[in-house]
Design a protein around this nucleic acid. Sequence first.
DNA 1: CATGGTAGACAACCTGGTTTACTATATGGG
DNA 2: CCCATATAGTAAACCAGGTTGTCTACCATG
Lengths: 157, 157
Amino acid sequence: MAEPTPGYELPLQLFAAFRAIIDAAHADLARHGHAGVKPLHGFVFQAIGARGTTAVELGARLGVSKQAAGKTIANLEKQGYVERAADPDDARRKLVRLTAKGLDVLAVSARSFDAVQARWAEAIGPERLAALHADLRTLAPGDHFRLDAPGWFGTDR
Amino acid sequence: MAEPTPGYELPLQLFAAFRAIIDAAHADLARHGHAGVKPLHGFVFQAIGARGTTAVELGARLGVSKQAAGKTIANLEKQGYVERAADPDDARRKLVRLTAKGLDVLAVSARSFDAVQARWAEAIGPERLAALHADLRTLAPGDHFRLDAPGWFGTDR
DNA sequence: CATGGTAGACAACCTGGTTTACTATATGGG
DNA sequence: CCCATATAGTAAACCAGGTTGTCTACCATG
């Protein structure tokens, strides 16, 4: 038989597909005036969510230290994507929330993702896309939401 | 109908699946005495390949500067995964080749990838897995081999 | 043989991560 | 009621890996 696809192809394909979506989304974002937002930030925005969060919580969700989360927040704050407010119930905490600009990023991304999905449904057919969804769900433990990608790839240590 | 899967799920699933494979491979690698190898390095090893390469070429394949490639090579050399030799045909070039240890990483990874694929074939059936392969190939331009992941995720700029 | 291009190395700098350490505020048991 | 302990946030020092710019050695071509 023709050689079975060598094993290393699958991860590359998965990554390429992932990357294709992300790149599409960020092209859209750039077109909508959010050129400064990078893939990494997409994870951050999702982790902050519409309801807001705190530095410690964000760090936990992202799988980085609270200090790193703090730096990222400061960065995004400077760019006007998030804002910090004191928590009336706990003077230690500072609530981090997306600004209108930040929410717009979320909205644009969502539309972009949907668009990609629609294109894909057209390309391979809705059934195949549904199967892909289902299979991925089966294969990847899909722990709720693993958004702790950032450092993971990293170097040593 | 039930809500259509929100668009942001697909990239997360793809990433989760990718990550599951990579993590499995690196767990295997650690078990085989290659604990120092990180996901990023997997890309590098693939890019070097069994035939060897040079810093410039490696940089091009990885999508990073030749200097960055040089640093990575130096790092891997220190760990004993690659070795540098003068090119007899061109005194400027230095051939970078995987050592036996480096080749072992490639071999272990390959086995690991195949094992994952076999498990997945069992989980969703060979036809579904083949379909997944085929669909991903359709959806992600699959430019030959895009191994330029490293910096891409990065930060601002 | 002189000129222009290429391979590699080095240095300075940037970003984002980590650890360590500190301050301010909660909280809960004696 | 008060102190001990834990938690939120911040800052500093350091590290890894990326970038650009510069330099040297070597090739190749006119």
